[in-house]
Amino acid sequence: MKGREFRPTLSAVSITDSAQLQKDLARVALGDRAAFARVYQATSAHLFGVALRILNRRDVAEDVLQEAFVSVWHHAGSYQAASGQPMTWLISIVRNKALDVVRSASMRHETAMPMTADGEEMEVHDERPSPLQLLTQATEAMAIRGCMEALDASHRQCLALAYYQGMSHSEVAAHMRAPLGSVKAWVRRGLERLKKCMENSQ
């Protein structure tokens, strides 16, 4: 971190920290609780941000974060440094747990309400960047914004709603007031485009 500005919005965990995080996860696998505390300190705010986006409720997102970290404690041994960045692994754990919760009927009802009520995006949380803004920022940081913007905004919007808000196809369709079949096709095109853009930028 020395001599380098911390940029929480685009790089929650810098490359330097990533190496440290790998070491710490290896120590966590051996039952090192100090290393576990370091992993928590370095990643919890970013992971909580991800969970909160999907769940929209602090208490539920905090429960998910707790479950995720307990899971990290038990499964750190299954994380292999060769298989990717530690942050990728951690985000997958948190997202999967958040999606499990959000797909349960009662929870989805509560989280979906504020977003679908007006049909417009994010009035309830309008101080936060919209999913499409998040997608734009992320693709900008990866230098693939131009490539992604060859897609219709509505296609990108579908991808952003599904990824950042954890919406299902039918929720995206309801949110965008578009036919389910179109939404499925748009999401698929968004995914294909994303993969292509990222491959070309490498």
């Binding site: 929480p8 919005t9 929650a12 909580f48 905090e62 974060l65 960047p129 993969k195």
Partner: peptide
């Protein structure tokens, strides 16, 4: 795909949990 999506997650503003 997890790696691709993790790059998208980088733009989500961090929020400190309680």
């Amino acid at each position: 795909w997890e790696q691709r999506f993790a790059s998208l997650a980088a733009s989500v503003p961090p929020v400190v949990p309680s």
